[in-house]
Simulated assay, not measured.
Amino acid sequence: MKSEITYFKINKFGFYNKKSLTEVPLFGGYEHFIQLFSNWLKKQENLGSTSTKGPDNSGNNIYCSDFYHDESSGNFVITLWNEMSNVENKVLSLSRSQSIGNSTVKEDGDENSIIGLPSYFYFIPKKDLMLHVGLPQSSDNLRSIKQYISSYFKNLSKYKQTNSDGDTYYSDSEGEDKKCQFRLVWSKYTNQAEKKSLIDKAENISKIIQKVHITKYETDDRHLVRKGWEKLNNAFNELIPNFMSDDDDSKLFKDAINEASNRDFTISSPFKCDSHLIKKIINQYDQENENGSNNLIGFRTKGSSKTIWLSDSIIKTKIDLDIKSIDKKLPTATVVFIAISEKQEEILLPVYNEDEDTMKNAVNQ
């Protein structure tokens, strides 16, 4: 199965003092998470009970559909199920009542279904490294894993305690408020040479290019109406010339717009900048695209028709993994773990310097 690996250097994982800048967590690090989370997950009745979202949290639910930890290496895989409308005119769903680890997926939904997409994350704690494993029909929502783990610690872990005034605090010892908070901070691995090359060419940049890919999401009665999509339809309809407005071609054009699954927009604008501004744009782009944004930003220099896309600096590896596609079945966490482990040396080559036994620098998000 074809996959795309994206790399993240984990800078903080655990509970840290709110004021001090300690590098080591007070508690709640990898080992604590693996032990506490796996024990908690075993006690959950079904998929529907694995959401870690608190009563005050907004947004869609995220569930854990599978989890695997390898004791010999310490590495682990978390498979999340992200509640969302679906893409490419297909609705994928898991039953709310199915057991954790059950990979059966449906292409329709009912009242007991959770419509969404899976996402796969492979952690290598000894290297402070996280891999996002992009597979066919999986979500590229990179924030989901940060949101899920953070919400688990904040809402469901044994570290959550309440004082006599009813205020919440976090501690690994009863009755002692350690003035700390959970933090999961990572950096995305990027090719710094490509960015430096663009910064050096800042004075020669003449155009900024923005490419936006918008996907039409399938939904059902339980989801909000796609108001944004309808506004786009209206805007496209206004593009039809007056002389076509009443004929059959106009109707065919409108029908094609309404039935399209995806739309792509490319906007090109004159642009001048210096090295300071281009650095600011690059840093902002890195932060915003942590969530797998569909927006692409690029630049053209004077006298060149080639677009330099910022996304090209993000280190990714496309690789065939030994994962068989089985109808109506998602790859399990164990299968993903084995497939990554078998090719781990090859997968880590883009970010691992074998001679110095050190990781390449990652850009802070």
Rank of each mutant, 00 (worst) to 15 (best):
S250P: 03
I114P: 15
S275R: 11
E4L: 12
I208P: 04
D70W: 03
S171R: 05
H132A: 11
V105H: 06
K316E: 14
I78N: 00
I124L: 12
S293C: 09
D221M: 09
S99E: 11
N75H: 13
D167V: 10
S58T: 10
E356A: 09
K154P: 00
L156Y: 14
K195F: 11
I314R: 05
S268E: 15
I5G: 08
R183L: 11
T52P: 04
T317S: 15
D128V: 00
R143V: 03
E354G: 01
N242R: 11
N234C: 05
Q98H: 10
S138P: 08
S187I: 04
K279M: 06
I209F: 08
K251A: 12
G109I: 15
W40R: 02
N294I: 03
P350K: 12
Y152S: 08
K42M: 11
N283Q: 10
A339N: 00
I281W: 02
N11V: 01
K324V: 10
D322A: 13
N233T: 13
D172M: 05
G48Q: 07
I240N: 12
Y120E: 02
Y7V: 15
S261W: 04
E354W: 02
F33S: 10
D355N: 13
F265R: 04
Y120W: 00
K18F: 05
K280F: 13
W229G: 00
S72H: 08
Y285R: 01
A256P: 02
A193Q: 12
I10S: 00
W229N: 05
S341R: 11
P136W: 04
I314F: 10
